[in-house]
């Protein structure tokens, strides 16, 4: 095993062992009972429905929200980042101010603001579209993330040598073409670790959607605690910590590996 794999494996099992140790310290003799409660409620916490009959609630909601938010933020971040490297100084400075504005907003405040700012029903061409708290959470989270992506995008473009622009211009390419066909394909691998870190941050941030009334894993966790009794609160929170860790840690390890191979390639 390489040094990196060893340390990643150590981190992984170390954290899992640490969480287990806390569970054992808290429950002692009752650990078995606590694990049974977690097992019984696993389907609810993971999928939002009993006996794995459905999908889209609980932890799966956190995953879906993070993926959808990321998709929106990638598109918006692409345009905002593009505006931030615009040759027009006015466009550039407005885009930079806007990016900073989004980046310095607390996610919780943005989520609350979206909850009230967005209507629950939108009609487009006569179709009623129902804007659920779920959708609001997706949109709310995509705002700050757009800023991070725009920045990653700008830095990626800056990392491509100016000579590339000059030679492409000499070949008669237009600005948009250069950006799309020449700069982006080179910048994207450089941006990738940054984008992945942003995604991991967004994924972890989905725990905040508990305030929007979406049935995410934390909301369901609280309902379970309310129904099964406070004695199992610790177990439920530990379980949720573990779920997030199991998802986010491999992603972080992979990101580090990418970064290393990039810096080797230089």
């Amino acid at each position: 095993m390489s040094k990196e794999t060893t340390s990643a494996t150590f981190g992984f099992f170390g954290v899992v062992a640490a969480l287990l140790a806390v569970l054992l310290t808290l429950y002692g003799q009752g650990t078995g009972e606590a694990l049974r409660v977690l097992f019984d409620r696993s389907s609810l916490l993971l999928t939002g429905s009993s006996n794995f009959s459905g999908f889209g609630g609980g932890f799966s909601a956190n995953v879906i929200i993070s993926v959808l938010s990321m998709a929106i933020a990638l598109v918006c971040g692409f345009f905002l980042g593009g505006a931030m490297v615009s040759p027009n100084a006015m466009v550039r400075s407005v885009a930079v101010v806007f990016m900073n504005l989004l980046r310095s907003s607390p996610w919780l405040v943005v989520l609350y603001a979206m909850l009230y700012l967005l209507p629950f029903n939108v009609s487009i061409f006569g179709h009623h579209i129902f804007v659920s708290p779920f959708l609001k959470a997706v949109i709310g989270l995509s705002f700050p993330v757009t800023a991070y992506i725009a920045e990653a995008f700008r830095n990626g473009i800056h990392a491509v040598p100016d000579g590339q622009w000059e030679s492409a211009r000499a070949l008669g390419y237009r600005r948009g073409q250069i950006l799309r066909l020449i700069i982006l394909p080179q910048a994207f691998p450089l941006m990738l670790p940054n984008l992945m870190t942003t995604y991991a941050m967004l994924f972890i941030g989905t725990s905040l959607v508990v305030v929007t009334g979406t049935s995410d894993v934390l909301s369901i966790g609280k309902t379970v605690i309310a129904s099964d009794g406070d004695d199992y609160a610790a177990a439920v929170y530990l379980y949720i910590l573990l779920l997030f860790f199991l998802f986010a840690y491999p992603l972080a390890t992979w990101t580090r590996a990418l970064e290393r191979s990039l810096s080797k390639g230089k």
Binding site: G11, G14, V15, S207, L241, F245, A252
Partner: peptide, 15 residues
């Protein structure tokens, strides 16, 4: 290292 791995990869709200 375990502390870093745990705190960086889980939501601060749940922490």
């Amino acid at each position: 290292i375990i502390m870093i791995d745990l705190f960086r990869n889980t939501p601060p709200l749940v922490q």
